[in-house]
Design a protein around this nucleic acid. Structure first.
Lengths: 254, 254
DNA sequence: CGAACCCTTGATACGCTTCAACAAGAGTGG
DNA sequence: CCACTCTTGTTGAAGCGTATCAAGGGTTCG
């Protein structure tokens, strides 16, 4: 059958082979657009950009490498610049208890540092990834001189809270099919609405998708097939076509 | 059998009778200790206390009254001063979809206002309660003049994130018995450890406890009986005695 | 080629919900 | 005072949703 191997996506091998640790790099430049994405779209002043670029460290991670663990003291704000990083719980036995995946330019952990303790979760790079690391004390200084920066951080934290609130709500009251529908819709958001057929390409392992939905890979497979049978989507390996958008939205709405 | 009626606790009647709305009051005074509890225990300066008392409004709620709804624009930081307020989803049919309950002096919603949108959830007073309402624009001014206040807010937001992260973690991976054990332990924390018998008094309806644990009242009842049979706790109506603390901790630990 | 990893499918088991019935306390009104 | 109603919690039987276990096939790597 149309059974694609994940290696096509160049993810799993890197995530399971333990290649040597990557070195930190300072020489990488960060585009202003990436800063804007991370800080919520509002206009960053030139002074802010300069200050951020002066304090930031870029850390390159190979697939499977830990970004941080919950035993480390959190003294930095951490964002993902490129690639994907999974948040969850590392266990002695291999399987990483994945709970959430953070993609592209986005905050990875904005909250732990302020509490003066350790990180709340373990973080592991899914594929190769790049991290932006900002020391807390220098961020404090920046906030003192640039009050606008303060709002961006508060907004970021508030955004995280609302996302987690939604997540707990769904976990409490919605079943797996609903959560999958929400996830699929979130994934075909930026597509062109003029195109009649909306197509999603899954660029993670399906078991990682399942983990984020808090279901087993087996259940995810069954859900996919079920939606396929209903004519809502068409699944071909790592390619999902949305055939009946209204139905999918109905499943996600309630 | 030992079937206590909830009315003994003077909660349910107030929560279901729709008594008239209470009027806002400015004349209530707030103890400095309450401010400290809300803002995380660190020392608030005299100037900060004065500013907070100058901007705050105290709102008295009768049982069942809405504190805010997710259709209102969030322009205030809201804390619970006295009583308990439930966060969740109000539905057309009576039953309020309770997801979390906030007790005593504690933040109720610290995040929504920063996003410039509406509240993330509906909030409803469980019994009679008092709210502290702080206008966002005046909090901004205070933060500008008192940099320490900024840290307190960031810490509060970070604390909320960690709590929600734990919640999602438990919902994803832990069963009802575990969550109940965690809840019970959280409730007998401030008790005197020298006393051989730890006793907890449930001052909410059991169905509200169940809602917070994301289980049905029936399941909660069964779990209680199960723990009772195991000799871990002894249940008598709204009085729970912890007989075997180590066992309870073991259930909560993993 | 075998080994390792992935996904899928089926059978079975378990946890929890749903539905229904019942007991007991509190308020209400005759 | 009693009957009636409303609420709450409890208990049991049945059923749904998802996990678990086991087996099989596809692809890539060494």
């Amino acid at each position: 059958m149309d059974n694609f191997n994940i290696n096509t996506l160049q993810i799993a091998r890197g995530a399971n082979k333990r290649t040597g640790p990557a070195r930190d790099e300072l020489s990488t430049s960060i585009a202003a657009s990436d800063w804007h994405t991370i800080f919520g779209g509002a206009g960053l002043s030139l002074a802010e950009l300069q200050a951020l670029n002066a304090m930031r460290t870029v850390r390159r991670l190979r697939g499977g490498e830990m970004a941080f663990t919950r035993h480390q003291r959190a003294q930095h704000l951490v964002a993902v610049l490129k690639g994907s990083v999974g948040l969850g719980l590392a266990r002695d036995d291999e399987p990483f208890y994945l709970e959430r995946t953070v993609h592209g330019p986005q905050w990875l952990d904005l909250s732990s540092a302020w509490l003066g303790g350790s990180y709340a979760q373990d973080a592991r790079a899914v594929g190769d990834a790049q991290l932006i690391v900002l020391p807390l004390n220098r961020m404090r200084e920046l906030m003192a001189s640039q009050p606008a920066m303060l709002d961006r951080l508060l907004t970021g934290l508030a955004h995280a809270i609302h996302g987690l609130t939604d997540m707990t709500h769904d976990l409490m009251h919605k079943d797996a099919e609903h959560r999958l529908a929400v996830w699929l819709l979130q994934r075909c958001q930026p597509e062109d609405p003029t195109c009649r057929e909306i197509s999603i390409s899954l660029n993670e392992r399906k078991r990682d998708i399942a983990a984020q939905l808090a279901i087993t890979p087996e259940t995810l497979s069954r859900m996919m097939r079920q939606l396929n049978r209903k004519g809502v989507i068409e699944v071909q390996g790592y390619r999902v076509k949305v055939l009946d958008l209204p139905s999918l939205q109905a499943l996600a709405r309630d």
